[in-house]
């Protein structure tokens, strides 16, 4: 099979879907000849034209609301929000409109839209361009939240997100864009709500999201050298969350470490830990659940400070050992 980067996989999913479904179009800032801030839509305006690759003014409130309105009336818009930090400006449309319309209207109408947006730190873009705010969106009933970590997952999940009849927030970690994996040429769908076991193991379960999946896999390789067998689970979608896969894994390993880049306080890791605490897996635990997340600080500019604001491979290795050394 051929390899694609995560970025190419996202583009391919959109292009293939647009070739077969006239209702799908993209709107966003600088997505035309510029190709979007990260180059994801590069070449698409040449193929699909400016009607379907709609370069918008810098107006996040208007474009998110326009996507909601278009979705409600029969289109299937994909909105590229240039940085996930700007969700704050699109927030009202996503939270008070998109998420609630169908329920408020007693099951009438639907909002089939995807809001794709690059998230995370690691690029030196500092506090207003580096956040991981996915927990906000996961908190809101009516939204689905997807966070792929690999090229293969990105393509399949984006296809599923476009097919969804509900608003989906699709987070693309900037540092994942250049990562590669085998990606089938044909269009395929990965159902929302299916976790993936990225590595099987027996001693400790790590549940990690986005770039932390890659860091956890690195940590697992390190730990293997010391005879520690780590299972790494990527939930892939936060809403819906595949609790079964996580519970089964913890029943097997009896130890859980949860890792995400987002600030630990109020982060989605708390939700995952609670799922285990409330489940039958609780009785199987041999050590307290360990959560790793970003420090409660805005992302700083200086590269060393920036790195130290979020969990690194060493932190994951240490957390796993701590869990194993309990008692």
């Amino acid at each position: 099979m051929r390899e694609l980067t995560y970025l190419e996989a996202v583009r391919e999913a959109m292009s293939q879907e647009m070739r077969q479904n006239e209702d799908v179009f993209i709107l966003g800032e600088d997505i035309g000849v510029y190709g979007g801030a990260f180059g994801v839509t590069r070449g698409m305006i040449e193929e699909f034209g400016p009607e379907r690759i709609r370069n918008t003014p810098i107006s996040e409130a208007a474009i998110s609301g326009t996507a909601v309105g278009a979705a409600l009336t029969g289109m299937r818009p994909i909105l590229e929000l240039q940085f996930s930090d700007f969700m704050t400006i699109a927030m009202d449309n996503m939270v008070n409109q998109a998420a609630k319309i169908r329920y408020m209207y007693g099951g009438k109408g639907k909002v089939p839209m995807v809001l794709r947006t690059p998230a995370g730190s690691g690029t030196g873009a500092a506090a207003q361009h580096s956040q991981s705010l996915e927990a906000w969106m996961a908190h809101v009933p009516g939204l689905k939240v997807v966070q792929p970590s690999t090229a293969y997952d990105a393509k399949g999940l984006l296809k599923a997100a476009i097919d969804e009849d509900n608003p989906v927030i699709f987070y693309e970690h900037k540092l994942c864009y250049k990562t590669k994996s085998d990606v089938p040429e044909e269009l395929y769908s990965i159902p929302l709500g299916q976790a993936d076991i990225k590595r099987e193991g027996s001693d400790v379960t790590i549940v990690a999201t986005a770039i932390m999946v890659h860091k956890s896999l690195e940590a697992a390789v390190e730990l293997e050298k010391e005879g520690i067998s780590v299972e790494v689970i990527d939930p892939r979608t936060l809403v819906p969350l595949d609790t079964d896969t996580i519970i089964e894994s913890v029943k097997k390993t009896s130890r859980l470490v949860v890792v995400h880049e987002a600030v630990k306080r109020g982060g989605f890791g708390g939700e995952i830990a609670s799922v285990i605490a409330e489940s039958e897996a609780f009785d199987y635990l041999d050590a307290p659940i360990k959560r790793l997340g970003g420090k409660a600080v805005p992302i700083p500019y200086n590269p060393e400070l920036e790195k130290s604001a979020i969990p690194g491979v060493d932190d994951i290795v240490a957390a796993v050992k701590e869990t194993l050394n309990h008692r």
Binding site: I58, D85, A125, A126, A127, Q128
Partner: peptide
């Protein structure tokens, strides 16, 4: 060193700051 290019401010001199958020 925490702000970088997009966030230089000098509040004492009346520069309330650059801004990474357009608008």
């Amino acid at each position: 060193g925490k702000g970088g290019s997009m966030h230089i401010a000098d509040v004492d001199k009346g520069n309330l700051g650059a801004n990474g958020i357009v608008g």
